[in-house]
């Protein structure tokens, strides 16, 4: 029989216990994330722990249905299901962390690695000074003033052409130092993880983590100001970015 093995999803007491335990662990990791002041590494670990526990029951039930349809002995066998579902969840979690978000920026935005000698020399010099691996610097085809960076397998920094258009040399250096500050603290991994958490976790609506992201921004600002020995350039760069946003409404009704 083609569909004969699949008699619908049976959620027995064992599966209910598994779902409840997994959901409880997802809540516990979320509370720990919110409650304690932790290192970046610990926060990232908790975010992925939370995502894995939140998704685990869905993966178990999907695997159960797939085993049933394929007439495999893993159907309705909890030990087998866990053995199959756990590595699958881990695999998808890792793929999301290391490929989905960086891949989105790498493959779906028009960008190229800059050949600008000043930027590459500046990034190289300061990366050495602060003891991090030199990131590749990409220019993205975007008129909005945008700068961001992240680290998965390699460090990458993205600067928009619009940002370079409107900032002076020192202001651009301040923005680059701000991004290097993020890379040094591995904050990009944290903000990327929070993005994944907001997109995929059903519990993300219950928790807000603005203070973590704001704290990282303040750290990166302080980092740039310390290296430049003034916060003048960073402030002026931020003012121009704000001005760009407010200029967007000029003559809109024409």
């Amino acid at each position: 029989m083609v569909m004969g093995c699949f008699a619908g999803l049976v959620i027995d007491a064992d599966k209910m216990l598994l779902i409840a335990s997994s959901a409880s662990l997802a809540v516990v990791t979320l509370l720990a994330l919110k409650k304690f002041s932790l290192s970046t590494k610990a926060k990232v670990g908790l975010i992925y722990g939370h995502l894995i526990f939140a998704f685990f029951p869905f993966v178990v039930l999907t695997t159960d249905a797939a085993c049933g349809i394929a007439c495999m002995p893993c159907a309705n066998n909890l030990a087998n299901l866990i053995a199959l579902a756990f590595p699958t969840t881990l695999l998808f979690g890792t793929m999301a962390a290391f490929f989905v978000i960086p891949g989105f920026y790498m493959f779906f935005s028009r960008k190229f690695e800059t050949g600008n000698a000043h930027i590459t020399r500046f990034v190289g010099r300061y990366s050495r000074n602060i003891g991090i691996k030199k990131p590749k610097v990409y220019i993205i085809d975007n008129a909005n003033p945008v700068a961001f960076s992240f680290k998965s397998f390699k460090s990458m920094m993205f600067l928009s052409a619009g940002l370079i258009d409107m900032l002076g040399k020192k202001e651009l250096e301040a923005v680059i130092l701000h991004e290097l500050g993020h890379l040094k603290r591995k904050a990009s991994v944290l903000s990327m993880s929070f993005s994944l958490f907001r997109i995929f976790s059903p519990l993300s609506l219950l928790a807000r983590f603005h203070h973590d992201v704001d704290g990282e921004e303040l750290y990166a600002d302080g980092f740039a100001a310390k290296l430049q020995k003034t916060e003048r350039h960073l402030k002026s760069a931020k003012r121009k970015i704000d001005e760009f946003e407010s200029s967007k409404s000029i003559g809109r009704n024409q």
Binding site: I139, A143, A161, L172
Partner: peptide, 22 residues
């Protein structure tokens, strides 16, 4: 940027000495 969106001007990124500007 607005003139570019309206299709009146074209732009290209020039990755010159001053760095990837339009």
């Amino acid at each position: 940027d607005r003139l570019h969106q309206k299709g009146i001007v074209r732009r290209a990124i020039e990755d010159g000495r001053g760095g990837g500007h339009y």
